[in-house]
Every structure is written in structure tokens, then in C-alpha cells.
Design a protein around this nucleic acid. Structure first.
Length: 467
RNA sequence: GGCCCCAUCAUCUAGAGGCCUAGGAUACCGGGCUUUCAUCCCGGACACACGGGUUCGAAUCCCGUUGGGGUCACCA
């Protein structure tokens, strides 16, 4: 049984786009093998907890269609799915490790820790805990019974090789001498990530740990824990970290990183997911555009490349445009209406204009940029109409006499006027375009005028003359 | 800095020894279509980091160098 998970921390505004990426890979992998996808909330850092973050993460995941089979809302066989509610479990297990002498109590103060760290740094040796408390456990236990604050540390063996296999990168081996005696249980009684992740992944029967590359260097600690507990290892796959254009880890300083930002900018979930699937992975037939179902069918972990890809919003934007073009008119109308629900747009106008703007917008947000004039009169003109008054007056007279106000007929009636006035087509229609919309770039003119209707067009022509 | 991971156009990538005078996509530049813009079509410029091996033959395998990234917390 394939069981995958993501373990977001409610410490930010929303789910990070990089986490959305790993979530998608995990979800797709589970779907491909008829497995289960679990969302586990890792809220063990009480100091960085952000109120509302958990809800936001869950709702964003849902907005992108990545639904968990087991999570804090749905529950499941292995609940609770919030780590702060599993404290007893961690405690019990870590004590087991102490019994086995794989872990030990430590009552060192932060001051002492800071001191030895500084000293080691000065001596240019790797700063890490010096196992000071390990040799005097009885004494330490006595201190603890007297109420002294303590942590429990992993007793990392000296100078051993820890090896594990990563599906994407092959065998990775690290000497334990580069590992610290990691704190497993913090003094507030909460586990650290390293303890909690191993226990939960085991207890929740996670078969494949698919997570970001930044976890590679702490995986040996996890291996040591699995060995200490005498548990079987899951399969590890470390997917690449998404990068800023300067190749550093994707960060909010340099890029929009919150998943919901993309939705707010008018990107379609499917387009974002499709783009994300191309990060470190490519379709065997070199396709760019494909839906989730096809991704599930063709995806393999082995095909993920270990190279960290730059997140290129330009290509995402192109892809989003492609998705918008492929939407049915009805579907696009609904999406635009929903996107601009606060604007209370006239549904009929949106419906009529949708086919006109379909190939012209890259995001839903672009819609009003290009079509706003259909809902309201221009407030200014991008081109001066001062020396065009005569032309406009002639157009006005002509338009007054058009009875069949269809796009085709409007064009047919106006075209001869351009010839008669000896004005080039582009000049003539640009003038009219600006009169109608105020802008130089618009959807097709005759069609737009048809949507506006004869009366509205006449009003705009008169307004332009008076301007 | 130690350890670990990585290395094909600006970017995402194809490529698993001969099919590669390296293919596609985005972006960019030019042209066509066109009542603006967009779509669409055609064309262009642009890459195997470097140095050693192995081999009849290397973008592909090995080693080194360089470069980039990650990680070294009672954060995840």
C-alpha cells in the first residue's frame, strides 16, 4: 500500500508554493498507485506558530484540488493528525530510546550551549554538543527530579557511516562525525521535527517519504532513529528545491511564494499544477500541456531530475494563457464572474465579451484591464482627439443611421467612411477605438460596439466631440 | 568553512556511448496574417562549465577542478 504525506508547518501566511509542489508530487504518486495521501500538521514549534495558518494551508490545498485522504478535518485510522495532539506518543517512544541508551537526558543550559559553540567555532571545529551530560546520567536524572529543565538528545555513534538510498539520487552516505546529538524532545515537552517525523511516518505507515532536498542532510539522523527503534525504513525521495532566478532557495523576498497569491492574481489551479509538474520532471513525449490525469498516468519518481529548477513566472503566465484559451466560453465566463465577484459585473456583458478576450488575456485578472470600458465610459483618452473632431462627427452621423447594430454591419457601414474621408484604415479605426474605450489596445472594435449597443456608442461619440 | 547534493541555450528541459553539425517549450529578435492588441504561421540568435582519462567513438562512463545549491538550532 502506497501511503504518502506532506507535513506542513503552520508558521507562515499560507502554504508555500514549494510545499504545494511537493504536495502535488506526493498526491499524484499516491493516486497513481491507488494509495493514500495524508496531510499531517507539524505544529511543534510553539514560538513560530501563526494563528489561522493551518486553516489557510488546508483551504489552499483544497483550492488546488489536492485533497487528503486523511487529515485533521477528515480524520482517519491514525489520528490525530496534528502533532501537538500526539505529545504522549512521542514521550513514550523517546523514553524507550532512553532505555535502550540510544538517547539521553541533557540539562545543559542555553548559556553553556552557547559557550561551547563559540569555543568550537573559534577552534574551527564543527560546533556540536559535546555529550557532556551523557556520562553523568544519574546525576542529570536527579537534577530533573528536582525540577530542572531538560531535553532528550539522540546519542549519535561516533565515526560510523550512515547510508541510505534515495530514489532520485541513488546512495547517499554520511559519516556520523558530521552529525550533532540532535535534541529529540524539547524542554517544553514538544518533540523536534526529527523525532516526530520518524515516529509519525512509522506509525502512520508512510511508505514513501517524498520531501524537499533540504532534508537530505538530516535524513541520516532519521535513519539512526529508525535503527534505534528497530523499524523498517520507508523509501526516500528528495525532490529538488524550487529556486529564485538567482538560484537560491525560492523565498518570499525574491518571489511571490504563497499559493493563494497565484489564485488572487488570476492563475488557474490547473495551470499552476501543470507548470509545477514540469519542475524537475518532463513528459516522456515532451509535452508541455497536459492535465492531472495524464500526469498521474505518466509520472514516475525516477524521472525526476535532481537539479534545482528556477521558478519562471513568465512561462507560468504563458501556460495560464493557454489554459484560458482552452476553456469553454461558459466556463471562462463563470471564472471571470467569480474572480471579480466584488465588482458585481453584468453577467450578460461578461458572457458576450468572453469570446473576444479569450485569446488576449493571460490571467483572469487581465480581464478588466482589457474589458473595463464595456462596463463604464472612458474617463480619459490615450490619444489626443483634438484634431479628430471632424472625423468623430462624421462617424456620429453615420452611426446614427445604422439600424442593424451587429458587428458585421457596423464594420460594413463604417469602412466606406474611412475611404471617403481619405483616412487610412488604421488611423480611422484607432480614432474610433479610443473614442469608445479610451484605450489603444482593445478587443475587436465592431464586436465591442455591438456589445455596447447603439445608444451607448452614440453617447460616447458625443462625449468625445465635447471633450 | 565542514559535510551533502548538483552541473545541456537567459529559463524549463529532451538526451541513459554512435540516431546530436544537440531536439522541444518559454522569453527575446525578425517576417507573414490583421482595423489595435492578442491568437496563429514562418524564420533567427542562443547551450553540452573546464581539464584529464576509459573507448574505434562521450553531452552521455570515471577522476579532478571550477561553479551553484542545501545543511550545519530546544525551526520545520
Amino acid at each position: 500500500m502506497v501511503r504518502t504525506r506532506i507535513a506542513p508547518s503552520p508558521t507562515g501566511e499560507d502554504i508555500h508554493i514549494g510545499n504545494l509542489y511537493t504536495a502535488y508530487i506526493n498526491w499524484v504518486f499516491a493516486k497513481k498507485y491507488d494509495g493514500k495521501f495524508i496531510v499531517r500538521i507539524e505544529d511543534t514549534d510553539r514560538s513560530r506558530l501563526v494563528a489561522g495558518a493551518e486553516d489557510k494551508i488546508l483551504s489552499s490545498l483544497k483550492a488546488f484540488g489536492i485533497e487528503a485522504d486523511e487529515d485533521v478535518l477528515k480524520g482517519g485510522e491514525f489520528e490525530p493528525y496534528r502533532q501537538s495532539e500526539r505529545l504522549e506518543i512521542y514521550k513514550k517512544h523517546v523514553l524507550e530510546l532512553v532505555d535502550k541508551e540510544k538517547a539521553y537526558y541533557c540539562t545543559c543550559t542555553q548559556d553553556r550551549l552557547d559557550f561551547i559553540r563559540a569555543k568550537m567555532q573559534k577552534e574551527k571545529i564543527l560546533p556540536r554538543y559535546d555529550k557532556h551530560c551523557l556520562s553523568k546520567q544519574e546525576e542529570v536524572k536527579k537534577e530533573i527530579s528536582e525540577g530542572k529543565k531538560y531535553v532528550i538528545r539522540l546519542n549519535v555513534p561516533v565515526d560510523e557511516i550512515v547510508e541510505f538510498e534515495d530514489v532520485i539520487r541513488g546512495v547517499i552516505s554520511i559519516n556520523t562525525s558530521s552529525l550533532d546529538d540532535q535534541v529529540l524532545l524539547k524542554s517544553d515537552g514538544f518533540p523536534t521535527y526529527h523525532l516526530a517525523v520518524v515516529i509519525d511516518d512509522h506509525l502512520m505507515e508512510i511508505s514513501h517519504v517524498i520531501r524537499a532536498e533540504e532534508w537530505i542532510s538530516s535524513t541520516p539522523k532519521h535513519i539512526l532513529l529508525y535503527q534505534a527503534f528497530e523499524w523498517d525504513l520507508p523509501i526516500f525521495a528528495h525532490v529538488p528545491i524550487l529556486r529564485n532566478p538567482d538560484k537560491s532557495k525560492l523565498s518570499k523576498r525574491k518571489n511571490p511564494v504563497w499559493a493563494s497569491w497565484y489564485l488572487e492574481e488570476g492563475f488557474l489551479p490547473q495551470a499552476v499544477l501543470n507548470y509545477l509538474s514540469l519542475m524537475g520532471w518532463s513528459h516522456p513525449e515532451e509535452k508541455d500541456i497536459f492535465d492531472t490525469e495524464e500526469f498521474i498516468n505518466t509520472f514516475t519518481l525516477e524521472r525526476i531530475s535532481p537539479v534545482g529548477p528556477v521558478f519562471d513566472i513568465k512561462k507560468l503566465t504563458w501556460m495560464n494563457g493557454q489554459y484560458i484559451m482552452r476553456l469553454t466560453d461558459e466556463d471562462l465566463k463563470t471564472k471571470i464572474l467569480d474572480f471579480f465577484k466584488n465588482e458585481n459585473l453584468d453577467e450578460e456583458i461578461v458572457a458576450k465579451s468572453t469570446p473576444l478576450i479569450k485569446e488576449r488575456i493571460k490571467t483572469l485578472k487581465d480581464y478588466l484591464n482589457i474589458a473595463k470600458f464595456l462596463f463604464q465610459k472612458p474617463t480619459e483618452y490615450e490619444i489626443s482627439l483634438m484634431d479628430k473632431k471632424n472625423i468623430i462627427a462624421q462617424i456620429l452621423r453615420k452611426v446614427e443611421n445604422i439600424d442593424d447594430f451587429s458587428a458585421k454591419n457596423i464594420g460594413d457601414c463604417l469602412q466606406p467612411l474611412a475611404v471617403k474621408l481619405e483616412v487610412s484604415n488604421s488611423d480611422f479605426f484607432m480614432t474610433l477605438r479610443v473614442v469608445m474605450s479610451g484605450k489603444k489596445i482593445t478587443p475587436p472594435l465592431s464586436e465591442s460596439m455591438e456589445i455596447l449597443g447603439k445608444d451607448e456608442c452614440l453617447e460616447r461619440l458625443r462625449a468625445a466631440i465635447l471633450d
